[in-house]
Design a protein around this nucleic acid. Sequence first.
RNA 1: GCCGGGGUAGGGUAGCCUGGUUAUCCUCGGGGACUGUGGAUCCCCUGACUCGAGUUCAAAUCUCGGUCCCGGCCCCA
Length: 415
Amino acid sequence: MIQRPRGTRDFLPEEMERRRHYESLLRGVCRSHCFREVATPIFENTELFTAKSGPNIVDEIYSFQDKGGRDISLRPELTAAVMRMFVNEMSNLPRPLKLFYFGQCFRYERPQSGRYREFFQFGAEIIGAANAETDAEAIALAAAMVRALGLREYHLRVGHIGILRDKLRSMGVADHDMAEILQKLDKKSYDEAEPLLLARGVSDKDKEELFAMTRMVGGKELLPAIEGEAGDYLRELFAFLDAYGIRDVQLDIGTVRGLDYYTGVVFEIEAPCLGAEKQVCGGGSYTLSEMLGGDAVFSTGFAIGFDRILLALEREEQAFVNRSPDAFVLATGEDVRVESFRVASLLREAGLAVDVDLMRRKMSKAMKAAASTGARYAVIVGAKELATDSVTVRDMQSGEQKLVSIEELGSHLMD
RNA sequence: GCCGGGGUAGGGUAGCCUGGUUAUCCUCGGGGACUGUGGAUCCCCUGACUCGAGUUCAAAUCUCGGUCCCGGCCCCA
């Protein structure tokens, strides 16, 4: 037996139907917000990902040389690819561009709960605008998507990377030193952040103030206290979010991102039921296009961990019921078997989901098979009925049976 | 990369500690009893010890290694 590669999954029909269902809900939300879908290759030149995330990223992704000696990687995320596409092919389109995407990504990591080597991201980017309404639009979309899926318990947290950066700058920390410190602060690793700060001559008082800021989490009552441009920006953002009906937002000054390309607002959504890997959505405003050889263009985007959010729905025991056939067609015997397929075809043409017995079962077994598919009706094709161009329709729930002419069969089953 | 727990038919399990006939039971699947009526019952059938090495007369069982799964650490673009 050949095993599946580590960290991958097979999706059986039931699971696949469920996935497609939720996928289409998400697509619907994107369309209602007038985002348009794009797709990029599953593999890219490795350079694209090292340009975005640094050379060490190669250790964590599926990276190889193809037969032509090109350095290729399976995409570990989709933002870089979408920005590449924007720079290469879409930079002259009217702005803002509102794009969304869904696809699998690959990371060479140790699998654990909610973490696979092949996983799916559903994300969106707004390219070419840099203001509070753009960020609000992105956050509103993310929130609407999570709501559309029906996730009951989640936390939406919004922060602004500028607040801590301003603070660090005022404390005399140089810009190129910030990423490392912010990374520690994001994880609330104060022990590790402290020596970095002290080494740059930050006073104890400043340090404590900084640490206190990273612990600021709350509702919009915190807004007035936030100084500077970032504060103004957040007040504006929250006004737009409020207009969009998004009120269950936490303001979290400690939510930052270590990476340099984030420029302002950052946000994440987490589902507490998931345990260690509970973040189901992450995003923010950034500028990446320059790193990919384009002009400086501001964007806001996010990605939803599709597998994770489905796992969260499962943990919340949100039932998904697979669709069952409208009808199951079976023959009473060999003499009318071919004719039963004609009836099935007729019903399919009429737009019904119709299954047939392919196993040459005897009638009682066929009936049993019909029951196990969950079909609403059994359509029994027999010589007696065919004599009057009719079939017997059995309601599988009630057991009630009727003689129905083949001509009226389709419309009879429709209602 | 690190720590811990696991792996017996498609799914769920017993057996493992204490090595010894044909590997248990349930379910699912196929067929039959039922020759024109399902979800009931009965009967029959298909189907498994994660892989490799070692110990032994003998390994599902003991030992070591690989692999995969589960939970956590690290990382999280």
